[in-house]
Computed example of a mutant assay.
Amino acid sequence: MPDGKTAKPARGRTDWAALRALSEDEIERIAAGDADNPATVDEAEWARGTVGLPPRKTAIHATFDQDVVAFFKQGGRGYQTRMNAVLRRYMEAQIAKKEG
């Protein structure tokens, strides 16, 4: 880093002391109420699930309007992934339109 400064390690947002203070029963109760907890998904939902790898990425050189890039960068890290998601959604909509 410039000027002899050293990087500080990133601080997490987990309150480890509060987490350690929870009992197993409290942890189980919290987990059971969490809609994102895979253990709370019923068997029918799992039966509809699919497993697959994400599509392979291809590096390209592309030029975008400055305001478009600035818009996506406002969301922070991962702006290229978000841009890809928008392009993918457009592609899927066009394919669906062709298929009827």
Rank of each mutant, 00 (worst) to 15 (best):
M1S: 02
P2K: 09
P2S: 08
D3V: 03
D3K: 06
G4P: 05
K5G: 05
K5W: 06
K5D: 09
T6K: 14
A7K: 02
A7H: 03
K8C: 04
K8T: 13
K8E: 14
P9N: 12
P9F: 06
A10S: 04
R13P: 13
T14D: 08
T14I: 15
D15R: 12
D15P: 09
D15A: 13
W16C: 01
A18Q: 04
A18G: 11
L19T: 10
R20H: 11
R20I: 09
L22S: 02
L22M: 08
S23N: 05
E24S: 03
D25S: 10
D25T: 08
E26V: 02
E26S: 05
E26M: 06
I27T: 08
E28R: 08
E28C: 03
R29D: 09
R29Y: 02
I30M: 06
A31C: 03
A31I: 03
A31K: 07
G33L: 03
G33W: 03
A35N: 04
D36R: 12
D36L: 10
N37M: 04
P38V: 03
A39V: 01
T40D: 02
T40H: 11
V41M: 13
V41T: 06
D42P: 15
D42H: 12
A44Y: 07
E45R: 15
E45C: 02
E45Y: 05
W46P: 10
A47Q: 14
A47C: 08
R48W: 01
G49Q: 12
T50Q: 12
V51T: 15
V51P: 00
V51H: 04
G52Q: 05
L53R: 12
P55D: 12
R56Y: 03
R56M: 02
K57C: 10
K57D: 12
T58R: 12
T58F: 04
A59L: 11
H61C: 04
A62R: 01
A62E: 00
T63C: 09
F64Q: 00
F64C: 02
D65I: 02
D65M: 01
Q66W: 06
D67G: 03
D67F: 01
D67N: 08
V68N: 10
V68E: 09
V69K: 09
A70S: 12
A70G: 08
F71I: 07
F72N: 10
K73N: 08
K73S: 08
G75P: 00
G76L: 06
G76A: 03
R77D: 00
G78N: 07
G78S: 07
G78V: 01
G78F: 07
G78L: 10
G78E: 11
Y79T: 03
Y79M: 05
Y79S: 07
Q80N: 13
T81F: 12
T81D: 14
T81P: 01
T81H: 13
R82A: 15
M83C: 04
N84L: 15
A85D: 14
A85M: 07
V86A: 15
V86L: 11
L87Y: 00
R88Y: 01
R88K: 11
R89I: 00
R89W: 00
Y90N: 08
Y90V: 13
Y90P: 00
M91A: 15
M91D: 07
E92K: 11
E92G: 00
Q94G: 10
Q94I: 10
I95A: 09
A96P: 06
A96Y: 09
A96H: 06
K97Y: 14
K97R: 14
K97Q: 12
E99T: 05
G100L: 08
G100A: 06
